[in-house]
Design a protein around this nucleic acid. Sequence first.
DNA 1: GACATTGCTTGACTCGCTCAACCATTGGCC
DNA 2: GGCCAATGGTTGAGCGAGTCAAGCAATGTC
Lengths: 158, 158
Amino acid sequence: MATSPERFAQARRLSRGIIQTAERVKADFGEIVSALDIPPPLGRAVLELDEPAPMRDLAERLGCDRSYVTNLADGLEERGLIERVPGVDRRVKLLRLTPSGRDVRDRITERIAERSMVLDRLTDEQCAALGPLLDVLLAGDSPAVPTAPCFDEPGPPE
Amino acid sequence: MATSPERFAQARRLSRGIIQTAERVKADFGEIVSALDIPPPLGRAVLELDEPAPMRDLAERLGCDRSYVTNLADGLEERGLIERVPGVDRRVKLLRLTPSGRDVRDRITERIAERSMVLDRLTDEQCAALGPLLDVLLAGDSPAVPTAPCFDEPGPPE
DNA sequence: GACATTGCTTGACTCGCTCAACCATTGGCC
DNA sequence: GGCCAATGGTTGAGCGAGTCAAGCAATGTC
């Protein structure tokens, strides 16, 4: 209902704002890690490896395919940032940061803290306001669409 | 300064939230246009073509390379959604929605208005709160963000 | 009339990622 | 103990979304 032009315009404006902000955040991160000579996806991975984790876990955390984690791990290994250590279950390989990897991780977090766009621009109150809004937007991450009988849902059958 | 762990954790939390939200918004849009059998980039383009525009302009609005607009235009033309009409300056080609293109555009806007995640989940006050926050985050010059044209629409709504 | 400029196109390529097929190990079960 | 399905990781092919460099056509400028 209320398919009013204003309503649409507002949805569009906000959606754009969100997307553009995200793109800035990503670009920010990209700059930071690129300065360390690390492609962004590898940087993301490093931040997830505070402690050794099975590749499967990493895939889950990054929300990507396992085969891609193999890829990431190769890249990280080439750069000497991680090593694959066998788990108890010998199918499993744990990715563990090397000293150099920990160093990189620390540099990244340091620089984010220093020059993160979010921290730079938002006051504490604004941060406090933004958090809950995002929570609302992300709440119930199930792809089940609540009240939209319009068209076929992509609902991936589990 | 203030390189405290909490501060970093907060930056990370918010950044993630923003990125995830953006990804959901994108996915939302992707679903909507995919249901119309249109790849997302083409859908984006259609929404920019309320009135015929030179390809160059479109490139600017989409924040992408001109050669890519050629690509998009090809796709849109194949689907019969636009036609290239020569401009006064005969180097220029204007992209103009066909009737079928206008139809698609209307369907998209309609569905966004119906089931946009943003509108679905946020109350009016929350929308009102979110807007300014995004403005703050996006305010100022974008030093190194290539794909972020200005946030505001050049033309006010008609 | 020559020349730089502007607009679009083309083709090759990169990046981030998925998908399908595969091998190795493991655990359940008879 | 032996079979078999399930799980973890790897490989290779491929796709979507773009960029970049080079080129052609029309234009503006001197």
